[in-house]
Nucleic acid binder design. Structure first.
Lengths: 91, 91
DNA sequence: CGCGTCCAATACCGATTTCGCATCGGCCGG
DNA sequence: CCGGCCGATGCGAAATCGGTATTGGACGCG
């Protein structure tokens, strides 16, 4: 599992559509498809249902989405924590 | 920033020593040195002071360590969240 | 004072991973 | 049927990553 896989997953979940998620992430569609599959394989569960119109979250995906956002938020918090030690704390 | 960089950083912080961290992570020392530098470059701050005896956390490193653990915990939580949807909730 | 030792950093190379382009297969709507 | 819109896959190029070997610097001991 990698941070970009998590970012990809969240984008797909929010767009409900791989093409749009790809455009938003500035990557092409195949990497998204592959990384999502790799993520599902590693987790041992399908996260999306592939429909002819796009991607719809499955229960496992719903559960993962919440925690995935928490991971990304934690990463942002980590970045800011370092930032804060640089500037002499102006809050 | 990648999850392995975060794992590497935490291991170095806990061991205070690159060689021991490398052994614990089952990688060799050079990758650790490189990934740590890449992390520091990306964050724009030194996380450790390099001493002749090993690595000592700097203030930025202390701040990052707390949040880094939170990230790894969040990843674990995400894994378990999916796991929970697989087994029909036996709690 | 050297000299051996222990530390992280770097050079170099091979292996693995990842990407993008092109294309395929499936599924609807007309 | 057929055309268009999905995600999935094959493939070759590019980037990433790890390991071995080596360097450079600081301390401890004779």
């Amino acid at each position: 599992m990698s941070l970009s896989q998590i970012e990809y997953f969240v984008a797909i979940a929010e767009e409900g559509h791989m093409g749009r998620a790809a455009r938003r992430l500035h990557v092409s569609q195949p990497p998204l498809s592959r990384q999502l599959r790799a993520l599902e394989d590693e987790l041992g569960a399908r996260l999306f249902a592939r429909t002819p119109r796009g991607m719809r979250l499955l229960p496992a995906g719903e559960a993962f989405l919440t925690e995935a956002r928490a991971v990304l938020d934690a990463v942002e918090a980590a970045r800011r924590a370092v930032e804060r030690t640089r500037d002499p704390r102006r809050e």
